[in-house]
C-alpha cells in the first residue's frame, strides 16, 4: 500500500516519495525474510517426514538412498493401522459432538439465565489446563474402578475422559463467540418476539455462534485425536493412532520399516487436521473469533 501511494505522488515530492518507497521495500524484504524463516522452521520437519515416508533407506547421507511407494501401500492396506485410524477418528468425533452438545446449553444458561454460576463454570473449564492429563487419567481410573468397574478399559470410558479434558476448548471458543454476538441481548429480543428457549437456542444462538462452534469442535477433535496419556492409562486394550505410534517408536525395528510407516501415519494425521483447519478458516472468514480464555475471563471481572 505504501508503495502504491508513493507512485501516485505529484513530481514535487517525488524524491521524498522515492525514499519512502525505498523504506517500504526494505521493510517488505525484512518481513518476507522473517516470514520465510518461520515457514522454513515449521515446514522442515514435515518435509523431512514426507521424504522419509518415500525413502528406501535414509541413514548416512543428506538425501535418501532411494525412493519407494512401498510404505504408503503397506500402511494404507494395514488392517491394524486402519483400525487405529478409525478408532481415533470415532473417538475424536464423539468427543467433539458430546462437548458441543454439553457446552452450548451450559454456556448459554450461564450467560443468559443464571450469571451467578459463571465463576463455577469458568473454574471447571480451567481445571483440565491446570492438571496434567496423566493425573486426571489416574483419578478417572481410580474412580471408575470404584463406581463402574465394568467400564474400565472400554472405549466408552475413554470417550468420557476425552470429553472431560477437551471441553474447555469448546467452552472458551463458544463463550467468546457468545460474547462477540451479544447473545444476552439477542436472547431477550427473541423472547420478546415469543420464542421458546429451544427456539432461541436453535434459531438464534447456534447460527450466531457458528464460528465458535466450528473452532471449538476442531480444537476438541484435535485434542482428543492426539491425546496419549489418558488413552494409555484408560484405554490400554484399545488401539488409537497415538498408542500405535508410540508402539512403533518403542519397537526399535527400523529394518522392518516401522519408522517409515510411522512417517506415513504422521503425515496422514497432519493432513486430516490440516484439512479440518482449512474448513475452520473458511467458515470463519471475515469474522473475529475469540479463542483465548482472556477474552471471556476479562469480562467476568466486571460482570460479577
Amino acid at each position: 500500500m505504501a508503495v502504491d501511494a508513493a507512485t501516485s505522488r505529484p513530481p514535487a515530492t517525488e524524491l521524498l516519495g522515492a525514499r519512502r518507497a525505498g523504506e517500504a521495500t526494505l521493510s517488505r524484504v525484512a518481513k518476507s525474510l522473517f516470514f520465510g524463516a518461520a515457514l522454513f522452521y515449521l515446514c522442515v520437519p514435515m518435509v523431512a517426514v514426507l521424504i522419509y515416508s518415500f525413502s528406501t533407506r535414509w541413514t548416512a547421507n543428506v538425501l535418501p538412498d532411494g525412493y519407494t511407494l512401498e510404505w504408503w501401500q503397506q500402511t494404507l492396506s494395514n488392517p491394524r493401522i486402519q483400525s487405529a485410524f478409525s478408532t481415533s477418528v470415532m473417538l475424536a468425533t464423539l468427543t467433539a459432538i458430546i462437548d458441543i452438545a454439553v457446552v452450548v446449553p451450559a454456556a448459554y444458561w450461564s450467560r443468559v439465565r443464571n450469571p451467578h454460576i459463571r465463576p463455577v463454570v469458568e473454574l471447571a473449564a480451567a481445571i483440565p489446563f491446570a492438571l496434567p492429563y496423566i493425573v486426571i487419567a489416574f483419578g478417572l481410573m481410580q474412580f471408575s474402578g470404584i463406581a463402574a468397574p465394568q467400564y474400565q478399559g472400554t472405549f466408552a470410558l475413554l470417550v468420557a475422559g476425552h470429553a472431560a479434558i477437551a471441553f474447555p476448548f469448546v467452552y472458551w471458543a463458544v463463550d467468546g463467540a457468545m460474547a462477540a454476538a451479544g447473545i444476552e441481548r439477542l436472547s431477550e429480543t427473541a423472547e420478546a418476539c415469543g420464542a421458546s428457549p429451544f427456539q432461541i437456542v436453535r434459531r438464534i444462538v447456534i447460527p450466531n455462534i457458528s464460528p465458535g462452534l466450528v473452532t471449538g469442535g476442531l480444537l476438541s477433535f484435535a485434542a482428543s485425536f492426539g491425546e496419549f496419556a489418558m488413552a494409555q492409562i484408560i484405554g490400554r486394550s484399545l488401539d488409537t493412532v497415538p498408542l500405535w505410534s508410540a508402539e512403533m517408536i518403542r519397537s526399535y525395528s527400523d529394518t522392518a520399516g516401522s519408522y517409515n510407516r510411522l512417517a506415513v501415519v504422521t503425515l496422514l494425521t497432519f493432513l486430516l487436521l490440516f484439512a479440518l483447519s482449512a474448513v475452520v478458516v473458511y467458515w470463519n472468514r471475515g469474522q473475529t473469533v475469540r479463542l483465548l480464555p482472556g477474552a471471556g475471563a476479562a469480562r467476568t471481572g466486571d460482570g460479577r
Binding site: A181, R185, E188, T189, I204, N208
Partner: peptide
C-alpha cells in the same frame, strides 16, 4: 431496543 438487536443471521 436501543441497540436495534436485529438477528444478524
Amino acid at each position: 431496543f436501543q441497540s436495534y438487536a436485529l438477528f444478524p443471521n
